[in-house]
């Protein structure tokens, strides 16, 4: 069964056709890479999938629910979660709090519950703490628990953003250039974390990345985008030898 089913997706910005006839189907447990030169429309597609932009045409189905026109937070509720190209953490909140914010929708106590510290409040908060602790454990953030997010080293900030996205309990995770700005060693570490995360959480991942080594190394399937259109899809080996792709990346 497909977690994410996108058909004929397109958006116009004024006169510009930023994305045209984009299609993708991501099955459970699949890791798909989305690559393309700068300005090809990759992040725009993420913004369409997460409800930041409203598509001009096409359909987006997340677990068989049409999500066009839904607000970003509603889409998160339906099981999709993302990270950002330029890290967007809650800078003045601690690492722990950053993760607990994302656990928000999995708790149900109301405002009166928080004020009177009801039984449900205490139970849910303690579960949230456990979840946060186990996520920090996976991403090696435990020693930074009470540190403000802005004080973390760059690589840890990337990790925290992924941990935060996972705390929403997504079925599919959209990662926007998670290795941007990382050195080879940090990238290597990130690759291992992504692999580990699939084993542990069993979720689908759609990944935008410029680092070819990373993309080729972990993705089962790759979609190549140029000028808002898909120019190739296939396994890493197929993509590597596709003349269209080579042309898009290296020019004529």
């Amino acid at each position: 069964m497909a977690i994410l089913e996108v058909k004929n997706l397109g958006i116009n910005f004024g006169g510009l056709r930023a994305v045209d006839n984009f299609e993708i189907s991501i099955k459970e447990d699949e890791l798909v890479g989305l690559i393309g030169p700068n300005g090809a429309g990759k992040t725009t597609i993420f913004n369409l999938l997460t409800g930041v932009y409203f598509p001009t045409d096409g359909t987006i189905e997340l677990s068989n629910t049409d999500i066009r026109g839904r607000k970003p937070h509603q889409i998160v509720h339906l099981g999709s979660s993302r990270t950002f190209q330029n890290i967007r953490l809650f800078k003045n909140m601690t690492v722990m709090e950053n993760i607990k914010v994302a656990y928000h929708n999995r708790m149900s106590y109301g405002i009166f519950g928080s004020v009177f510290k009801t039984k449900r409040y205490r139970a849910e908060e303690s579960v949230a703490n456990e979840v946060a602790i186990s996520l920090m454990d996976v991403f090696e953030l435990t020693s930074f628990k009470d540190e403000q997010a802005k004080n973390l080293p760059y690589g840890k900030q990337r990790k925290l953003e992924i941990a935060r996205a996972l705390a929403t309990d997504p079925k599919i995770l959209l990662l926007d250039e998670p290795a941007a700005g990382m050195n080879p060693q940090e990238t290597e570490e990130l690759m291992n974390t992504i692999k580990l995360l699939r084993q542990r959480f069993g979720i689908s991942i759609l990944l935008i990345e410029h680092d070819m080594k990373l993309v080729m190394g972990i993705c089962e399937r790759i979609v190549v985008l140029d000028y808002g259109r898909i120019i190739a899809t296939g396994t890493p080996a197929e993509i590597r030898s596709n003349p269209e792709v080579i042309k898009a990346y290296l020019g004529e």
């Binding site: 998160v76 509720h77 950002f84 953490l89 003045n92 914010v101 994302a102 928000h104 929708n105 935060r164």
Partner: peptide
């Protein structure tokens, strides 16, 4: 306060 867009992206209304 810290980031409205990120806030929405983790499911906050």
């Amino acid at each position: 306060r810290d980031d409205e867009i990120a806030s929405e992206s983790v499911g906050i209304n």
